[in-house]
Each structure stands twice: as structure tokens, then as C-alpha cells.
């Protein structure tokens, strides 16, 4: 599979060293290795979601109960979760580390990903969510730690966009 297992491992290790103990996920192709790593790790609680917005509730509960969590989803899952982000995470000042695979950018071959790809950043901006693109292995560890630090300080959601160049091997 051309999904980068090496970079998935890098992301996973960075999540763990940032203190993440619970991951809720609704994957797509790019996220399969990450979900597998969480599943194989006895120290990680993996919650397989039926719909992404459940993950906002689960992370809110985990946070209030003292556990750091992260969400794994694609940008369409983020778009599907907007009300829960606004009405729970933002309204109640819940830190939320969202790892969003960023489909529909330059190089996208699936026509159905392209509309969502075009509106992802405008929607993040409209919600006032700080975001950063992860497009090279060299930025992964520090960006994930920095995102966690900011979100724990301002008690708000943050987004890391997992980009094609990082996740998909034959893109290079």
C-alpha cells in the first residue's frame, strides 16, 4: 500500500510522546496504519467511531476526566463535525487535537474529494481554529507537540492537516 507506514509510525510516536492516551478514529485510506498502530498498542485506548462528531464528545469526556486524546479523521469527517466542535469543544473550552487527513489538494485523483478539499481551510479559519500543515517528516514531532501545548493552554481545538506528501508515498 502506498500509504507511508514510516511516516504513520512517526506521527504515532509523536502522539504518544505528547501524552495522548486515547484515540478516536474514523479512518480513510491514509489513516489505516495509524489506526492499526493505536489498535496494536496496549497502552492506547482506541475508540472506533460510527460518526466523527461522537469523537468530540468522547474527547471532551476524556479531557474532563484527565486523559489527553486525539481524533483521527479525514477532512470530510471534520466538516461533518462542525456543530459539535462549535457547540461542545469551543463553547465549553475543550482542548481537542484533531489530526485531519487533507484530501482534495493538488495531486488528488478522486473527484469526490475535491469539493471538501477546497473548503477545509476556509472552514477552519471561519471557526478560528489554529491549524498547521504536516507535509514533511521533519516537522511532525515538533508540530504535534506544539499543537498539544497550544490547545492545552488555550483550551480550544487545534488541527493538524496530514498532507499528501507526508502520507502517500508515490506522491514524491
Amino acid at each position: 500500500m502506498p500509504v507511508s507506514s514510516q511516516n504513520s509510525q512517526l506521527i504515532y510516536d509523536a502522539l504518544k510522546s505528547a501524552g495522548v492516551r486515547l484515540v478516536s478514529a474514523l479512518p480513510e485510506t491514509w489513516l489505516v496504519h495509524l489506526v492499526g498502530l493505536a489498535d496494536d498498542d496496549p497502552e492506547m485506548i482506541l475508540v472506533r467511531l460510527a460518526k466523527e462528531e461522537e469523537g468530540i464528545g468522547i474527547s471532551a469526556g476524556a479531557h474532563l476526566a484527565g486523559v489527553s486524546s486525539a481524533m483521527l479523521m479525514q477532512n470530510h469527517g471534520f466538516l461533518a463535525s462542525v456543530n459539535s466542535i462549535v457547540s461542545l469543544a469551543q463553547l465549553y473550552r475543550i482542548p481537542l487535537l484533531m489530526l485531519i487527513s487533507f484530501r482534495g489538494e493538488f495531486g488528488e485523483t478522486d473527484p469526490w474529494q475535491t469539493e471538501g478539499g477546497g473548503v477545509t481551510i476556509p472552514v477552519l479559519d471561519a471557526l478560528g481554529i489554529p491549524w498547521k500543515r504536516l507535509d514533511s517528516p521533519s516537522v511532525v514531532k515538533k508540530s504535534i507537540q506544539d499543537a498539544m501545548t497550544l490547545s492545552s493552554a488555550n483550551l480550544r481545538p487545534v488541527a493538524l492537516l496530514l498532507c499528501r506528501d507526508l502520507m502517500w508515498e508515490d506522491a514524491n
Binding site: G55, A60, V67, L88
Partner: peptide
């Protein structure tokens, strides 16, 4: 949990798993 309709059970799940 005011306003965030549907998510009380998801929050309960997050708390129950964490604690």
C-alpha cells in the same frame, strides 16, 4: 451538557473509558 445535542452519551463514554 447544554446545547450539544446527542453528545452526552459520547461524553459519558469518554469519561468511563478514561476513569
Amino acid at each position: 451538557l447544554e446545547h450539544a445535542m446527542g453528545l452526552a452519551s459520547s461524553m459519558g463514554l469518554g469519561i468511563a473509558l478514561a476513569r
